Each structure stands twice: as C-alpha cells, then as structure tokens.
Computed example of a mutant assay.
Amino acid sequence: MLGGFDCTHWDWEACPVAWQGQYHRGDHYGPTIILKAVASFDLWIWHVFFGMPGVNNDIVVIIASRLFDRLVNGVGPNTSFSTNGVKNEYGYYLVNGNYPDWATLVHIFTCPTDDKRKYYKKKHESARKDIERAFGVFKKRRSIVKHPARIHQVDKIRNVIYTCIILHDMILVDSGRAIYQGERCAGSDDNTKRR
C-alpha cells in the first residue's frame, strides 16, 4: 500500500468576493481551498496537491493533481509485490467510495455480506484512517492551517501549505518517527521537495 489518499478543505477567510461562488460548497460555511494528500502510516505526507476551488469534487481534484500521469505512461514507481500467488506491478492507494474505479485505488465494501468482507472492511477502515490522522496532526501542529486563511493570493497560500508540510515531515524525521529514511518526495505538479 502506497498510502491513504484523501482531500481536506482549508477555510479561506480573505477570498475575494468575485471568487466566492467557485470556492464555496454547500457543506462548508464559507469559501475553501482543497488540499489533496497521500500519507503513509507513519504520518509522512509524501504527495500534495493544493489550490483547487472548494466547489470541486474528489474526482476533479484527482485528475487535476496529475498523480497518476506517470503511471498511465507506464513509468510508475517500482512497487511490485505478490498476494495469493499473483504478482502486482504497482502499488495501490486506499480511498473512500467517492473516487473512480481505477486499478490503483482500493475502495471499501459499502455493504459487506459475509465475514470475510466484513473483516476486510474493518481492516480497510483502520488503515485508511492514517490519512485522516495525518491531516489531524498536521492541522494541530500548524495553527496557521487550523484557522481560516487570511491571505488574498492563492499562490501565497500554496507556499504556506507546502512550507508547513515540509516542516511536518522534517519533524517526523528529526524525532525518529519516520519509518522510511531513504529519499522521499512530496509535492505537486511544479513544487516538489526532496531529502
């Protein structure tokens, strides 16, 4: 498993009035900006895409993030593994039911009928909580992200988010909580970070 995959919304208090319609969704109080991330069980946030208007759904965000572009072109990361005698070339991401049926996205059973599916659903939910926990720890450690954004330009807000995520991952490494100590990469289409 490459990690849990999900989106969260950051409230944007200083959103210009002309843009508020495209950044406001009915289930949020005001305008928001979407942060999509992939996090592993050690809370390492290794892929980030930020800046989509809050009105977009998860499918639009996943397509815009270009996370799967290299995989579509056949140059995805070498994460081969075997399960039940079947060799799989690429890793997979755990997602909720809002995402498309792609081979690298593993969904949860909505209504499990037998014990095996119930057990799978329980384990899937348990492992998928890693991304939710990563968002929670990230927001708790960075008070700037906990409160609504008061910056007017999306590019400046993006820089704040990426800086906070780099600091979040550096804290994991310095505290010895990061499991994998090799080279990792997190970023979006044009902004990446490397160790």
Rank of each mutant, 00 (worst) to 15 (best):
E125S: 15
K139C: 04
T113H: 11
W10V: 02
D169N: 15
K146P: 04
H124S: 04
N191K: 11
R70H: 04
Y29S: 04
W12E: 03
E132Y: 11
V173A: 09
D6A: 02
P31N: 01
L71F: 08
I34E: 03
N84K: 11
E132Q: 14
D27G: 02
A103H: 07
S126Y: 10
N88M: 12
R142V: 15
H147G: 01
K118H: 09
R150F: 10
L35H: 05
I151D: 09
I59L: 10
T192F: 14
I34P: 08
E125N: 15
D155H: 08
V95C: 10
N159K: 09
R142F: 15
Y180D: 13
H47T: 06
R141M: 13
Y99G: 08
H28A: 08
H152L: 14
T163C: 15
L35K: 01
F41Y: 11
I144Q: 09
T110I: 10
G30A: 12
F138S: 00
G136L: 03
G51T: 07
H24E: 12
D115H: 08
V106C: 13
S80M: 06
D6H: 07
C185M: 14
I45G: 03
R195N: 14
P16T: 03
T192I: 08
R133N: 15
L94P: 07
P77S: 03
H124F: 06
A134R: 10
P16S: 09
C164T: 12
